[in-house]
């Protein structure tokens, strides 16, 4: 009947890795297998359950498969499954845990832009965009996806090493009463309250306040 005999070792560590809802399936090769192993991928929507083959990831030798397009509705949950084959022998289908894009994605840090006057600095924060199919597609900021999205902002006085922390809901912050002619470094992080998610802190963006003209 042409059914492949299944006694081949299973792929391992099958899981979704998601950043800003770019949802990529990853796995490790079966133990003790060298080159030449080919993989098949299928996925299903939880509650529907019908397995759908991912044709672009049929008989591939790499150990990842981008399922962002198939899992882009973040109000749904998903499963994916991998089978490994070599020389007519293949493994069992190995499944992920249930993947919920809204709670299981990681979020990149915000983009930080700063400007300064003599005694203040102005900070504008931009949250990352949700993954999209093509550059032409309309952008969706993660602010629209997560109503509870906030920013934690750190401001460091490079001279005194004094650091302030702010937690803000909107994306702009003006820090007043600063020292003229002094360098300040800003870093920011995204904090979603529900579901509870944190991005890493952005790299530091440094700027100097203008010199005091009257001095």
């Amino acid at each position: 009947s042409g059914e492949l005999h299944c006694s081949f070792p299973n792929p391992r560590n099958v899981r979704f890795e998601s950043i800003n809802m770019k949802n990529v399936l990853h796995w490790s090769a079966p133990e003790g297998t060298g080159d030449g192993v080919l993989y098949k991928v299928k996925y299903s929507v939880y509650g529907v359950g019908k397995w759908i083959r991912k044709t672009e990831c049929r008989n591939i030798n790499r150990t990842w498969c981008d399922l962002s397009n198939e899992t882009s509705d973040y109000e749904e949950q998903y499963y994916a499954s991998i089978k490994a084959c070599l020389n007519g022998m293949c493994s069992d289908w190995m499944e992920t845990t249930r993947f919920n894009p809204l709670t299981d994605t990681k979020i990149d840090p915000p983009v930080v832009s700063v400007s300064s006057t003599e005694k203040s600095i102005s900070i504008i924060l931009t949250a990352p965009e949700k993954w999209k199919r093509s550059p032409e597609e309309e952008s969706v900021s993660l602010v629209q996806v997560y109503p509870g999205l906030q920013y934690n902002v750190s401001v460091l006085n490079k001279k005194t090493k004094k650091r302030w922390f702010f937690s803000i809901s909107n994306n702009t912050l003006v820090v007043p009463w600063l020292e003229p002619g002094t360098a300040y470094c800003v870093s920011a992080q995204i904090h979603v309250t529900t579901p509870l998610l944190y991005s890493g802190f952005s790299k530091e963006y440094c700027i100097a306040t203008l010199k005091d003209k009257t001095a």
């Binding site: 299903s44 939880y46 509650g47 529907v48 359950g49 019908k50 109000e75 749904e76 949950q77 499963y79």
Partner: peptide
């Protein structure tokens, strides 16, 4: 996998 209590048929 084929049944959801809360999601189907109407989300």
């Amino acid at each position: 996998r084929t049944l959801s209590i809360l999601s189907y048929p109407h989300s």
